[in-house]
């Protein structure tokens, strides 16, 4: 692997990480969707680059799916949902942007700490990619738990999944990657569908526990 190949891969993966942080920073739904679309596009570039570098042309399929489905279709669909369901455009963050960002930085540090000591037999490319991918995954998870809105949580999940695809394509010659990226897309479609059909708006996080009494037979006071 040449240094240029490495640098480009590194740049794209790093770009995804930056976009992940940016996602965490957003406090408006539509902006979040836009940033996510951007991340998906960067992902497809990164995957395409890996396909080119590894000479594994089937990965192009994955890149294409990422570009079309996650770069355009899903953000557009979510956009529609947000309008149709009249979801608050303001994102209710559980903790402020500052602490979230700090936590995010901590997570990045942790992933570097975890992956960097690994060097036996693992190519540098995979290793760098892995650190970034792990960070993206953790940040996605962090996003899921710091947002109260179903749509933004789905976005968090998709960002997490972007990290997975990044890691999978970085693993040289790994079988089943394409199939799995397809499967994940279906999964995501499912969740979008779920939000839409079942009107799961604030269901994700109903802080008002009293409202749940109607639904949960289990809610018990002292017997």
């Amino acid at each position: 692997m040449t240094s240029l190949q490495f640098d480009i891969a590194h740049l794209l993966a790093g770009g995804m990480l930056v976009l992940s942080l940016l996602l965490l920073y957003q406090d408006r739904i539509l902006a979040t969707l836009n940033v996510f679309a951007l991340q998906a596009i960067v992902l497809s570039l990164a995957v395409a680059w890996q396909a080119y570098v590894q000479g594994a042309m089937h990965l192009m399929v994955t890149a294409l799916i990422a570009l079309v489905v996650k770069g355009f279709v899903i953000p557009a669909a979510l956009n529609r949902i947000v309008y149709r369901l009249g979801i608050h455009r303001e994102i209710e963050q559980v903790i402020g942007a500052g602490p979230t960002m700090l936590t995010g930085l901590g997570l990045i540090a942790l992933s570097i700490l975890l992956v960097m000591p690994v060097n036996v037999g693992v190519t540098a490319l995979a290793r760098e990619d892995l650190a970034f991918a792990l960070a993206v995954i953790l940040l996605g998870l962090l996003m899921m738990i710091t947002r109260r809105n179903a749509v933004t949580q789905i976005v968090g999940f998709m960002s997490l999944e972007n990290g997975l695809i990044l890691a999978a394509t970085g693993a040289r010659g790994m079988p089943l990657v394409v199939e799995i990226s397809v499967a994940f897309s279906i999964l995501i479609a499912f969740s979008v569908f779920g939000i839409f059909v079942f009107r799961i708006r604030e269901r994700f996080d109903t802080v008002d526990l009293a409202a749940l009494d109607r639904f949960r037979s289990e809610r018990s006071t002292l017997q």
Partner: peptide
Amino acid sequence: FILGSVGIALAFFGTILIYLVAQPVIGEG
């Protein structure tokens, strides 16, 4: 669904890591 999906994702990452760890020893594929 949500918790399951997160689990799915994390398990998949674990699977990737297993591949990564095995690939230098066993070879690709």
